[in-house]
Design a binder for these strands. Sequence first.
DNA 1: ATATTTTTAGAGTATATACTCTAGGTGTCA
DNA 2: TGACACCTAGAGTATATACTCTAAAAATAT
Lengths: 219, 219
Amino acid sequence: MNTREKIILASLDLFNERGERNITTNHIASHLGISPGNLYYHFRNKTDIIYEIFLQYQLLVDHYLQAPEGRPLTVEDQFDYLESVFDGLWSYRFFHRDLEHYLESDERLKADYRKFTQRCIGSVVNIIRGMELSGILRPVSDHLRRSLALNVWLVVTNWMSFLKTAAGEESALIRKDTLKHGIYQVICLEAPYLQPAFYDQVTGLQQNYSPSVLNDLGL
Amino acid sequence: MNTREKIILASLDLFNERGERNITTNHIASHLGISPGNLYYHFRNKTDIIYEIFLQYQLLVDHYLQAPEGRPLTVEDQFDYLESVFDGLWSYRFFHRDLEHYLESDERLKADYRKFTQRCIGSVVNIIRGMELSGILRPVSDHLRRSLALNVWLVVTNWMSFLKTAAGEESALIRKDTLKHGIYQVICLEAPYLQPAFYDQVTGLQQNYSPSVLNDLGL
DNA sequence: ATATTTTTAGAGTATATACTCTAGGTGTCA
DNA sequence: TGACACCTAGAGTATATACTCTAAAAATAT
């Protein structure tokens, strides 16, 4: 692996583990055992490192949200989508934490991220429509489908932050599988629109993500 | 108004307008025309200022979410709740932006905020139950009511961040009334559970918050 | 082998930032 | 009037942080 890639990986790691705000370029360099000068040879500044990480994140999520080729959507497809997206959120979890700040200090990122959000919500809309077509969900209006997709996006992208801020001592360490309890909340959003024939199957699978966490929290 | 109160107000103002990360204690002092020494006479550090602001925020929201005295909940009550809460979110909008960071650097705040979240979600649960009792919503299981309340909380507290990150040039300036389009999304969450007798009234009022923004965004 | 380009080290710097310290002013109450 | 607590000014400091600059090593091409 070349130095540039190493910098990206180490930065992502450190940002995820200790928070971007607490990690300086000097930290990154010394963590890799390279000089600051070397780091700045490969990246003009810290903002550029973050932008590069975003590009990878974007690639990953876009890939995850692709529609299956010429076949109707299944219930399993939906859970696969959710599993993948939460995996992605986990791997790049520092990103949504101070997103607003990054967008403020990088116009490129701001424009790109906006388009990314649109694509993602568009994909969710398509997935919902796909499930209507395969008879999993009852048909809904374009308007409602859009609102539903948007709410899904809000729950998905902010679930991590909720866990981190609302979780107490005992579950202070959030792991990838804790994060996936968010899937339970997403299924709650779509449950009212499930066709009777699929209701039991979906809510059955939903139980795999039952948020015992919330009980711990007394919620 | 005494100096201590002035510092709190000025800090809140500057944090909201320019982002807490961009505002130093020296900025706050010079904005008020007082010396840094003076500021540090009243507050041990910046963290303490943020904590004090949180206490005010908490007081406000707790007040907003009180149950009405010995009468059933009305549809208007619900919209009042939502209007108030979004007002509160607007006035203290800097707070949810880097919340995780504040909780990391202040154990008091972390504990208090956790309890605050629990109280808030508890209030939402009560409001939902209230609406079931007054026949606005169909009765739901405790489990579902909780999940619903949690999703409401997620949408409400993260709507601002969504607008800021997904909104483009044209609507880059988010105002209080733009923020309230979030109410539309919240009503979408409860719509499936509305009793037929109230469906038209609620969805009618919902239209007042119709997110033309989203059309601008091409969503 | 030589020339040239790419990569790296590491000391160094300008600036910012949270916070301190001392001295002095101001109001209050006996 | 004097004692005393409260409040304020403002220069100053230790530290951090993003980033620069020069020179040299390593890789690559001719």
